[in-house]
Nucleic acid binder design. Structure first.
Lengths: 328, 328
DNA sequence: TTGTATGCGTTATCAA
DNA sequence: TTGATAACGCATACAA
């Protein structure tokens, strides 16, 4: 800017005004300034801007895992939405570790992010980053004073379990994530609900809590298949878990749905070509991402004071070929 | 910092020294300062730091598509590597658009990133961001003065095509990306090479250039199946393309490998459970990402002057069930 | 070992 | 409409 000012014979503050579209400036001067800025390849220094204006034009995105299709899609959508509004994305991955999350939030606080989209791991995550407008995506903790956007977890779980019960399944195993996550709790409510409104009095035969990974899915299936009475159906709470189960069944020569039925949450594109295609609750990823972005943009703008909202986006169950009546 | 200085009765510069681990400071003073910093919940302002120190401790990552498994994995790896060295990641997605890439690079230049990992789209991308140490990942343009890391594309293509030729296929179709991308060119060299070192004199029956997307893969398959003499095998240059082909064949009741064989680049985890599991050239994603990070960290450190290196990481072909001898 | 003072590149305030 | 100037938070050269 100094150089531009010199070349144009104006003050540095005039350059600033010209470049920021202030109205009170002579058009000819502005044009000259813009032209020389162009010629000199001038790029504003965001650090200086942020320092002075107390806004980094950046939002933080904190989530567990980029390899999970669900989060990858979310990231892509958030990226699009925020970029369109002139915000950059600062990405942090936690692997569901409370420590990594704490460090990530500390870094983001140093970065003076203007807003935060988080899939929280720690119950008290907000202690690590105060005073930043935030929206919780997918998971949430009640204590946080922040908006929530998620798909309707309970509904999805209820529909899937009902589907299995209607097919006649009575020995159903649930493979699900960390007991402390709100998603897990919501889904378990849905499971309970499905049983309550059916003529099957009991609940699921077995409930295994684990992680959303292929390896755990495979391991959990081993458990189910080798110990105790085998289930006739599995509810997998995520696509990665389902992938593990599917792979393991194939290795062991167990066929789906003849030997066992499988339903799950999520809908990566490979569900279309898997063997068999999976019956699934299609989470409304796109809507969730869009709403998260819009909500946060709102908070960062005017309506900061508004009450925290809790949005549940409904998805739909897609019946494919991984479910049928139980054997015998 | 001002407040810390006041509370501790020292100068602001002393606080700075204490917090940055300068040696010339009385241990007791340091402890007191660190303690009050902790108590006050002090977080350094990165904007100010960057402005003063001329380093943002940030690297830019510019790539075409977060939904492509290959790039998602790369991102995860880069994230890990750089975070471990105290660098943050600034993500930009281009969708293979030259314009979006230009804008992204401009933004990153404003951000004063310390380094750049890019999967370039524009031939002259470097014109848009001068003087930043960069490494080109996967794709590259020759004109750029920047390191290159990629898997051995030509090798992979050669092996896959040779595999098909050895099975007896003579009518092979190639479904591949943009003609201008180095990856496309390298792979085509490999294809050529495979033909030259076999007793099949001709080349592929058809070569279709398109985009790495499911939709294009499906559309391209339609082309192949409806117009002209049908191929007995398809080489798909990416997992997304393969996904499209697979989905379409299933819809149309074409069975793989009985009716047609399929090989492709990349190895998302769903290859394990697809119907059928695909024969593939497994790109060494992990190594590529790690080396890209290490190379860039090197550049950002001492050896900035060293010659640009061009690393080709070898991957391996995995034969699964999507290939067999041609029908008849 | 510590304090003082300067400047990094911008924006914003105030006079002119 | 413009220019001079202060301030944003921090790191550092230099003096004490």
């Amino acid at each position: 800017m100094k150089q531009i000012a010199r070349e144009c014979g104006v003050a540095i503050s005039t350059v600033s005004r010209a470049l920021n579209g202030s109205t009170s400036i002579r058009p000819e001067v502005r044009e000259q300034i813009v032209a020389t800025a162009q010629r000199l390849g001038y790029r504003p220094n965001n650090a200086a801007r942020a320092l002075r204006s107390r806004s980094s034009r950046t939002v933080g995105v904190v989530l567990p895992d980029m390899l999970n299709t669900f989060y990858a899609k979310c990231t892509a959508i958030l990226q699009d939405q925020f970029e369109a509004q002139g915000y950059g994305i600062r990405l942090a991955v936690t692997g569901n570790s409370v420590d990594r999350e704490r460090e990530a939030l500390a870094r983001l606080e140093s970065e003076r992010i203007d807003g935060l989209v988080i899939v929280p791991t720690a119950r008290r995550w907000q202690d690590h980053i105060r005073g930043v407008p935030a929206v919780q995506m997918n998971r949430h903790t009640k204590s946080a004073r922040a908006d929530i956007v998620q798909s309707d977890e309970a509904y999805g779980a209820r529909e899937l379990i009902s589907h299995l019960l209607n097919l006649g399944h009575r020995r159903i195993a649930v493979l699900i994530g960390d007991k402390n996550f709100s998603t897990t709790q919501d889904r378990m409510l849905g499971v309970r609900d499905a049983y309550d409104s059916s003529d099957a009095f009991a609940g699921p035969t077995r409930v295994l809590f684990g992680t959303h990974s292929r390896s755990w899915g495979a391991q959990a299936f081993d458990d189910l298949w080798t110990a105790g009475e085998r289930p006739t159906a599995i509810f997998a709470a995520g696509s990665e878990i389902a992938l593990g189960v599917l792979h393991r069944t194939r290795e062991m020569g167990v066929s789906i749905p003849e030997d066992i039925s499988l339903v799950c949450f999520g809908d990566p594109e490979w569900f279309l070509v898997s063997d068999p295609p999976l019956t699934t609750f299609e989470q409304p990823v796109r809507e969730v991402g869009m709403i998260a972005a819009q909500l946060l943009l709102g908070r960062m703008g005017a309506d900061e004071a508004a009450d925290a909202s809790h949005v549940r986006v409904s998805g739909r169950v897609i019946v494919r070929e991984s479910t049928t009546a139980p054997p015998e």
